[in-house]
């Protein structure tokens, strides 16, 4: 399912939107590589904040113009605002799933990775074990390691900054950073977006948590349906190529079959494992198909 992207600009640039790898077939295949994937702020169908088709100015190498710097700041802040709005739904859903306001806010402060946070509260709220919830959350956090790998040469973090840079390494900061034309602009993009999202996401989580706390029975307000829709919205931008669609189908079918059989929390992990196995074994065939298509 390759959806046309007319109207909204959707990022298709290699490495923008938080990806590594540079071979053309690598870029083209993965739905993951198109569109801002997720993180705090992975807004479904969210257009890439970066004008990826714009010609890159030659001059910008070491001393970027003021105008370029301002453009980067604007990009970062617009991403931060969009992301903050989405933090409200996390706060409300987290409290509805049984966490306290304090635990909810600590998740946004410490974990600070949207997909992982939603997975954790989803499994805990559904009655899953701590182990299953932490495992699902951690699997989703794994991609942040790839982002760090990619940003390392740009950010070269030292001392205490290493920890700040690491904590702010998420989809949005990576996406904005890697799509700039020069190292100083990349660093600026990283810091503005990372700090902006951090502040917005945490403030809005707090507001959402108090709102959710005041509501009472979450089912009455359809918050259980909202949780499912949130995952669908996170999945949506990834479904632009046939491979992620196939993997998603594996995950959905496996979960449906396993829910009545396995203890709570485990169907999700089993589905993830099967999805990973499918990706591992299909990788070769997909590479071959890509090579053929290229000829």
């Amino acid at each position: 399912m390759r959806r046309a992207t007319g109207g909204t600009r959707v990022c298709t640039v290699p490495g923008a939107c938080g990806t590594s790898g540079s071979h053309p077939s690598e870029r083209r295949r993965a739905g993951v590589r198109t569109g801002v994937a997720w993180g705090p702020g992975a807004v479904a169908g969210h257009p890439c904040p970066v004008d990826v088709d714009a010609p890159r100015p030659e001059h910008a190498d070491q001393h970027p113009r003021e105008r370029d710097r301002r453009a980067v700041v604007r990009q970062g802040l617009s991403v931060a605002i969009a992301t903050g709005l989405y933090g409200v739904s996390f706060g409300a859903l987290s409290v509805a799933s049984g966490l306290t306001v304090l635990q909810t806010c600590l998740l946004s402060l410490l974990l600070f990775s949207g997909g992982s946070q939603f997975a954790l509260i989803g499994i805990l709220g559904g009655g899953g074990t701590v182990g299953a919830a932490v495992a699902a959350s951690s699997l989703l956090a794994l991609r942040n390691a790839l982002y760090g790998l990619q940003l390392g040469p740009t950010m070269l973090p030292r001392g205490w900054r290493r920890f700040a840079v690491a904590q702010l390494t998420i989809d949005e900061s990576t996406a904005v950073a890697v799509s700039q034309s020069a190292t100083p602009l990349r660093r600026l993009g990283f810091w503005v977006t990372g700090l902006g999202v951090y502040i917005g996401w945490n403030l809005m989580t707090l507001i959402g948590a108090f709102a959710g706390d005041a509501l009472g029975d979450p089912r009455r307000y359809g918050l259980d349906a909202a949780a499912s829709a949130a995952f669908l919205a996170l999945l949506w931008p990834r479904l632009r190529a046939r491979e992620p669609v196939a993997i998603a189908v594996v995950g959905a079918v496996a979960t449906t079959l396993l829910i009545p059989v396995l203890p709570q929390g485990l169907p999700v992990l089993a589905a993830a494992l099967l999805g990973a196995l499918a990706a591992w074994f299909w990788a070769k065939r997909w590479s071959a198909a890509d090579a053929e298509a290229a000829e």
Binding site: V32, F118, I247, T256, A279
Partner: peptide
């Protein structure tokens, strides 16, 4: 890389089903 990229699709689809139909 492929597995790391595809894993979220499986996990998210699984969570949609879990939250939506269980």
């Amino acid at each position: 890389l492929r597995v790391t990229e595809m894993l979220p699709a499986a996990l998210l689809a699984s969570l949609v089903v879990l939250e939506g139909f269980s």
